[in-house]
């Protein structure tokens, strides 16, 4: 479902945009307004991060956003309510992003059932590789939801194929090593790596980590299907306020 949406939408666009927010940061009202502006500015799909106290794969910007959201009382219940509301209000697919402990503690099957019920299309859980994700994959498949898997520049060819055998919707390609929110060199190496990724899967490719402006997005055209803007929008909100998000997104397309 997610896959066909992306492929359909790509017919009229060179590249799609996926953005990311941490639910409840700076507040739920602000989160809602950010989503509204992003959708209006033409974002094609969105990651809604459920904050976690130990976000191991995230760099300083998203890490702080996780902590602040939790300090301000962002709970799982509130995140579900928020996700349900935006999924109902806006006509694009929404995904959850979080860490394994959140669905594990809630119950993998229950979590996936809940996602289906509130119309969330898939999930990105960076610390849940397929080897550890049997229950998760089963529950996601049962509900026809997409478990999004991640390719990295360190992943062997053999493992790319292994990962794509579990992937659904699209594959998330890390543009580089490291955590979120650091600089990425958009160079020939990246192009070589992305063509390797392309060979390993028929699914659309998203590229994230360090995508920050129009030049980066343009670079990815023809090499990937989706550009992922993560930390940069959080930084924009912090520096220029919630009202600046729409214009920022418009500057990318």
């Amino acid at each position: 479902m997610l896959e066909s949406y992306i492929k359909e939408r790509r017919k009229s666009r060179d590249i799609l945009l996926m953005t990311h927010i941490v639910m409840g940061y700076p507040s739920f009202e602000d989160s809602f307004e950010i989503v509204r502006q992003m959708v209006e500015a033409g974002v094609d799909l969105m990651e809604l991060q459920i904050p976690f106290s130990e976000p191991m794969a995230d760099g300083p910007v998203i890490l702080k956003a996780n902590q602040k959201a939790l300090e301000k009382g962002s709970s799982l219940t509130k995140c579900f309510d928020f996700a349900q509301r935006v999924a109902k209000e806006f006509p694009i697919p929404f995904l959850f992003m979080s860490y394994a402990n959140i669905p594990f503690k809630y119950g993998m099957e229950k979590f996936s059932d809940k996602m289906a019920k509130i119309n969330i299309k898939g999930a990105i859980i960076p610390d849940l590789p397929p080897e550890e994700g049997e229950d998760y994959i089963r529950a996601m498949n049962k509900n026809s939801l997409s478990p999004i898997y991640i390719f990295s520049p360190e992943t062997s060819d053999e493992r790319l194929l292994y990962l794509s055998s579990f992937a659904s919707g699209f594959v998330y390609c890390l543009a580089r090593k490291g955590v979120t929110g650091k600089k990425t060199a958009f160079s020939n190496d990246l192009a070589v790596y992305l063509s390797k990724c392309q060979k390993a899967t028929n699914l659309p490719l998203a590229v994230g980590f360090g995508v920050k402006d129009k030049a980066d997005v343009d670079y990815l055209k023809g090499k990937a299907d989706i550009a992922v803007i993560g930390s940069r929008t959080i930084r924009i909100v912090e520096e220029k306020g919630v009202a600046a998000t729409g214009d920022f997104i418009k500057s990318l397309v």
């Binding site: 794969a57 550890e132 062997s156 493992r159 890390l174």
Partner: peptide, 8 residues
């Protein structure tokens, strides 16, 4: 429970 980047 490893992020993909550390698997190798």
């Amino acid at each position: 429970f490893l992020p993909e980047i550390l698997v190798a």
